[in-house]
Amino acid sequence: MALSVHNDKSVLGVDWSNIDTVLLDMDGTLLDLRFDTEFWTEIVPATYAQTQGIDLEAAKAYLNPIHARESGHLNWYCLDFWSNVVGFDIAQLKRQHAANIGWRPEAENFLRRLRASHCEVVLITNAHPDTLRIKLEQVHLEPWLDKVFTSHSFNAPKEYQAFWQELQAASAFEPQRTLFIDDSESVLASAEIYGVAHLITLRQPDSSQRQRTETRYPAVLHFDELFEGLPHFDG
């Protein structure tokens, strides 16, 4: 087993000689989920309330059931869908607040070490292409990545088995020699069903929220917990 997991899942090691491909989520994994949390729970409802001439609670009462209904489906991540729901350009609003997009601790250093290793490093995200574009402009991930895929290109989110089938067709990988890191345990569960052998989640995807005390999958607080066995980055 590549993952050395103790009972409390608090001590984690990776045997990097057993890993050929590293699949990485973006929001809540490489990037602090705080931006997305504030954007969707505060900024969008406030903007909707202003444009509709209603109070914030009424705006949230309208939007929250739609969020709940679409959770886990492609529309949940689709800026075009939400722009139609609220009647204004969500991508434009997101760009106005893009300065708040930022790395999670040690994420960039982790990518640098991965880049210096033998592993293929692939970003797989449910983010809409406009969101991906905005974030790549703000936080320069590309130099450390071999490939980037958004689930919108596959017409299925990572929660669906169709995503993994399409990813395999687009970029062949050996599930038994693949490590996948994602803050969403429902997404990790989908990867596990597909056969991805090595799965890790995050204890604190959102820096404004408390650390998770229990996780279904082995978890790290920061990526420096995974540095052992990876080459140092000297560039």
Rank of each mutant, 00 (worst) to 15 (best):
P65D: 08
P65M: 04
I66S: 05
H67G: 03
H67V: 14
H67C: 04
R69N: 08
E70D: 06
E70V: 04
E70G: 04
H73V: 05
H73A: 09
W76D: 04
W76R: 11
Y77P: 07
C78S: 15
C78R: 01
C78Y: 00
L79A: 12
F81A: 01
S83E: 09
N84Y: 10
V85M: 05
V85P: 13
G87V: 12
G87W: 10
F88I: 06
A91Q: 08
A91G: 13
A99W: 13
A99F: 13
N100V: 02
I101K: 00
R104Y: 06
P105Y: 00
P105S: 07
E106P: 08
E108L: 15
N109G: 14
R113V: 00
L114Y: 10
A116K: 13
S117W: 01
H118F: 05
E120P: 10
L123C: 08
L123W: 01
L123T: 05
A127R: 05
A127Y: 09
H128F: 11
D130N: 12
T131Q: 13
L132H: 04
R133P: 05
R133I: 01
L136K: 12
E137S: 11
V139Y: 08
H140L: 13
L141A: 02
L141N: 06
E142Y: 14
P143K: 03
P143H: 06
P143E: 04
W144T: 00
L145Y: 07
L145S: 06
L145V: 05
K147Y: 14
V148P: 06
F149L: 08
S151E: 05
H152C: 06
H152Y: 11
